[in-house]
Design a protein around this nucleic acid. Structure first.
Length: 201
DNA sequence: TGCACGATTCTCT
DNA sequence: GAGAATCGTGCAA
């Protein structure tokens, strides 16, 4: 069952937390790959210095964040990796997004391994980090702006994660964001082997 | 037009 | 724990 638009049109921090346990599915030409979301980070738009949309910065790159909720915002970093985000929030047109940092592979393992040339064979190395997960799922800027409420790229109803199983910490690699680097806007499933960094840096 | 840098990952120490 | 790989983007000039 594909999640409805309404799921994303709520408080971004709530969506970020409830995204844990949901299933990200990509039906590509090479076949179907899917993974359970086990780690997310919320980026709160204009006020959040760690966000690309800080100060309401609106460019070709950040455009997708200003569009409808429940769409993909995918960008290129460090000259070699992509990061996958979901747009969300209660206010239409406000650039809030949720970075998906880690997945637990569910189907299409062989396709994922094929996509990651340097994989050492361990499933842990396929989707435990924002750059790797995009590679494994076959996502790139081609999917930027794609509607996640429809195929081929969408989010399905998955496991219900109990509150006690959810950990909340500060975000990763946003040291440049002054006081915003200390905001506890990262969520992940406790004791899940696929989380990129089980504890705070 | 030029230039510094990043919502990362891997390798080596 | 530090450094390299590698290039699109944003901002200064």
């Amino acid at each position: 069952m594909i999640l409805k638009r309404k799921f994303y049109e709520r408080e971004t921090l709530t969506v970020a937390r409830e995204l844990l346990g949901k299933l990200l599915v990509h039906e590509s030409d090479e076949g179907l790959t899917a993974g359970k979301i086990v780690e997310t980070e919320a980026y709160m738009g204009p006020e959040d210095k760690a966000s690309h949309a800080y100060g309401s910065l609106r460019t070709k790159r950040t455009e997708a964040q200003y569009g409808p909720k429940g769409h993909a915002y995918i960008y290129f970093v460090y000259g070699m990796y992509y990061c996958f985000n979901v747009t969300s929030g209660r206010t239409p047109g406000k650039p809030e997004a949720i970075l998906v940092r880690a997945l637990e592979p569910v189907s299409g393992l062989e396709i994922m391994k094929k996509r990651i040339a340097n994989s050492k064979g361990s499933a842990i190395n396929l989707t435990s980090g924002p750059g790797k997960l995009c590679m494994a799922m076959g996502m790139s800027t081609k999917q930027n702006g794609a509607d996640l409420c429809a195929r081929p790229l969408h989010v399905d109803e998955g496991d219900k994660i109990r509150k006690a199983e959810i950990a909340q910490t500060t975000r990763i690699n946003v040291d440049y964001a002054d006081e915003w680097k200390n905001t506890p806007w990262r969520f992940f499933v406790k004791n899940n082997a696929y989380v990129s960094r089980p504890t705070r840096k």
